[in-house]
Every structure is written in structure tokens, then in C-alpha cells.
Design a protein around this nucleic acid. Structure first.
Lengths: 244, 244
DNA sequence: GCCTGTGAAACATTTCACAGCA
DNA sequence: TGCTGTGAAATGTTTCACAGGC
């Protein structure tokens, strides 16, 4: 349901292991292009963001070096997992010593693509959309909120933080003008798919949805979902089990 | 970091495998008590909530029966995965026919423990906390928001939806009085761990945190985390890879 | 005949344990 | 000596493919 693949190169590496020989015999011509698209396991990518947070916090505390043990503890994972994760982005530590906080921070950020320019548009200026627009946590890591849209005439035109709510009628134009390359959907279920489609048509390839509905997106579009109700239900399952 | 274990049995078998005999040997008298604490794989639990959403939507459309293929499509997973997931909670379909929408809905809800009484308290009445308090998605699935706390004197006493913001000084008392058994933390990073500790001390075992920080909780406490910045960073990684 | 339920295979992730280098 | 980096083992998840009942 989500894999596709087209990288016909034997990038060579551990888990991500690229299909050894197999397919691809057809085209190519180059023996071994080194462009090799890394490929970090999804589970590791998610954790890299945690390490980043922990490293930022350490920087704030003036710490300059950290061991895998300590960083793992601060991130809530095992040290073995942490070392394995870091190995996917290369060897950036010193044996017998540990990791340089600042340097590692930059390495992870680079691996995640955070050095690029990310412009985020929020669709939906209801309670959640407004809260997101005002949330400072985005800006801090290079995500700039460039626009916020809504359909309600009473909300359009309002100021939220440094932004003015735009009419969703002008969604496509707005996305193009602001060069938004990510969209956050903060919408009720019944309009989410429609807005999602428009956003996709406008060429946006990265979408974060808070809508309580399963959205369909075409291949090549990256969709991540956050749903409070879902999280509570998962908690409920575990809590119930404690009681037996 | 999260496993514990105490089952000294060679459980051997597929994922969920019910602990064969194990604990409780004390009572019963039957050779094979069927009470057997299920055990659904975490990945499957997360997806069961998606099926629930899809089933609700189908009910709304007046659909009474659904095939694994159709339900999987609506939920965004493969039909094999769906059938496997459902098999963890028992056989509730009819071969050659499909699943009864209403019946399956109830079976999943029961398996997730949604028939119990969940009372949720929100700690933090900032932008996000207020948005969550007003979000209708909770109530719909048996989660009742029973209190919301904040430390800011300007916010304490305000009305949000049907609730009045309580002073976080009275957190412990408030949790006890309202019999809250779940807590949502909607707090800035610098106070999140402290509040988390207080909530844990008060006996709450299920916590959903929106704070952009890794929280430490003792064994036996269930913590789930949602972080917008993390989600965007993961999107950034994938988006960057599309460019190569 | 058709679609569910499920062993078994394929694949992915995590943990172990230790070699290797500062 | 001490901690990283990483093969190999253990564990978990997804997919395959087909037996089995309606």
C-alpha cells in the first residue's frame, strides 16, 4: 500500500539493503553510480527527530559531548537502537569518547533535509488551525508558516499571529504565490478529502492531516496523519489490558 | 525502553499468541481457561482504530455489509493486513460474504476497551489545550473531557465549551474528584515533565502528550506522544528524497 | 464460487555482543 | 580502557497463498 521503488541502484548498505542484483538488468549502463540514495528505515527516521530534540536541549544546557547511552536515555530509546540509527547516516562519533553535540545535530538535520526551505500552508482556521498557526514550535526548526486558509466568511480576513486568513477559494493561487511546499490540513472530516485533492492538484507533495478520516492520495504524495481520538483509543486498549 | 516481560514461558507462536496457561493458574480448574488475555500486536491495535472510523462512516451511509477488500480500501491498508488484524480479535466475518458493519464495529470497540468509561483531563489551556477541549471528536467515541487545568491566573476561571478552567494548583484534587483516568498534556516543554510527574503521582496510567519534549515515565504508565514538528520533519525527509 | 481465516514465507526492526579504534 | 559501529540473532510485521465454510 505504500512501497513503490524505482531506485535501480545497488546502494549497498545494511537494513535498507537494496535489491542485490535482481531486477533492473534492463537499463542502466553505468556500473555503479555513487549518487546512491541512502535510504534510512522509516522507524529510524522518526527517531532521528527525537535525537535532534534532545541534542538541542543539550546545547541549551551547554553540553558539548554526549555518549550514545546518555543521548538514548534522553530520547527514550535504547543505546543500541540509537547507535544503529546513527550508523544509517554515517559514522559521526568517536570510539571511546562519544558524539560532539553540535556536529551531530547538524549531521542529523542535514540527513533529514532540514537545511532546505520548507514553507507550510495551513488549510482550516478553526480552533486547531489557529492553534497550529500560533504554535512557535515550527519556526524553530526551519518550517515557515506562509499562509492559512478558511472557507468561513467570518474567519477570512482575521489576523492570526503574523498572518491574515485567506479565503480558501484562492487556495491554488495562494499556494503558488507563497511557494508552499507542505500543507497542514486542520479540517472537519466532511471537507478534508476535497481540500486534500485540491492541494494535491496544486502540486503539493507533503501533507500532514489532522482530519479524523482516512484520506486517499495518489502515489508520490506523502501523507502523514495525526488523530487525537485514535491516540486515545490506543491508550484505552492498553489501559484496559492492565485491568485484564 | 518499553518491554518488560515476566512471562517465563516459551510462548512460541505467531504475533499475538495468547499466553498459553501462565498466571492465574491459581483459580479455574479447567485445563484451558479461555479468559486468555488476547494480546494484539501494537501495529494491529493502531489499525483497528482506522477500521472503526471507516465502519462508522459506512454506517452513516447506510451500508450493512462490507468485504475485507472494501473495508481495507476505505482504511488505506491491504486486505490481507486487515483480515490478519481482525483475526486477532476473533472470527467475526462470514466466508464468502463479508462482515456485518454494525456487529464488527461493536467487536472492535469491545476489543479496544471502548465500552469502558474514559474520563479525560486536559492539562494546559493554551491555544492547543483550548482547541482540544472544544474538539468534538472525543465525545463521539466515549471519551469524556472532565476537566481542564492551567497555571495562568488570567486563564483560570475562563469558560471553554462546557468546562471552566481550573487552577493547576488543585490538579491532584481535581483529578481525583473527576475520576479522570486519562490525561492530555498540552504544555510547553519547560513544564511538561513536572506536570507529567504530578499526573503520574496522582495515579493516572494513560497519558497523551503534545509537549515537544521526551518525557520520562515509570513502568506501567502508558505514554503516547504527538508532535507536529516531528511530523513535519519526517515529511521533510521524504520530500527531500524525492528530489534526490 | 467467493471471501474469510490463517499457517508459512518474506520482510523489517530491535537487540545482542563484540571487534576495532581513539 | 571505553565507547562506537556493526554483523548476526531474535523478535515483530506484512504479504502470500490457499484451505475451509457459507
Amino acid at each position: 500500500m505504500k512501497k513503490k521503488e524505482l531506485s535501480p541502484l545497488p546502494t549497498g548498505g545494511k537494513p535498507p539493503v537494496v535489491v542485490p542484483s535482481s531486477a533492473q538488468g534492463a537499463l542502466d549502463g553505468y556500473p555503479a553510480a555513487e549518487q546512491a540514495v541512502k535510504q534510512i528505515p522509516p522507524a529510524a527516521v522518526a527517531r532521528l527527530t527525537l535525537y535532534l530534540r534532545a541534542l538541542n536541549s543539550l546545547t541549551g544546557d551547554g553540553v558539548e559531548r554526549v555518549s550514545s547511552e546518555a543521548l538514548a536515555e534522553a530520547s527514550g530509546v535504547s543505546s543500541a537502537t540509537l547507535r544503529k540509527d546513527l550508523s544509517y547516516i554515517g559514522s559521526h562519533g568517536t570510539r571511546g569518547v562519544g558524539y560532539e553535540v553540535d556536529y551531530l545535530n547538524r549531521q542529523i538535520a542535514a540527513a533529514l533535509g532540514l537545511t532546505l526551505d520548507w514553507k507550510v500552508a495551513i488549510v482550516g482556521a478553526g480552533n486547531l488551525g489557529r492553534a497550529l498557526a500560533r504554535y512557535g514550535g515550527f519556526q524553530s526548526r526551519g518550517f515557515e508558516i506562509v499562509a492559512i486558509f478558511d472557507a468561513d466568511p467570518l474567519i477570512v480576513g482575521q489576523e492570526i499571529g503574523f498572518l491574515r486568513v485567506s479565503d480558501v477559494l484562492g487556495l491554488e493561487t495562494g499556494l503558488a504565490q507563497t511557494r508552499a511546499n507542505m500543507v497542514v490540513l486542520a479540517l472537519p472530516a466532511h471537507v478534508a478529502q476535497e481540500m486534500c485533492d485540491r492541494v494535491v492538484s496544486a502540486g503539493v507533495k507533503s501533507i500532514l492531516s489532522f482530519a479524523p478520516i482516512t484520506l486517499q492520495v495518489p502515489e508520490g504524495v506523502n501523507l502523514r496523519k495525526v488523530d487525537m481520538a485514535t491516540e486515545l483509543q490506543i491508550l484505552a486498549y492498553h489501559a484496559q489490558r492492565l485491568v485484564d
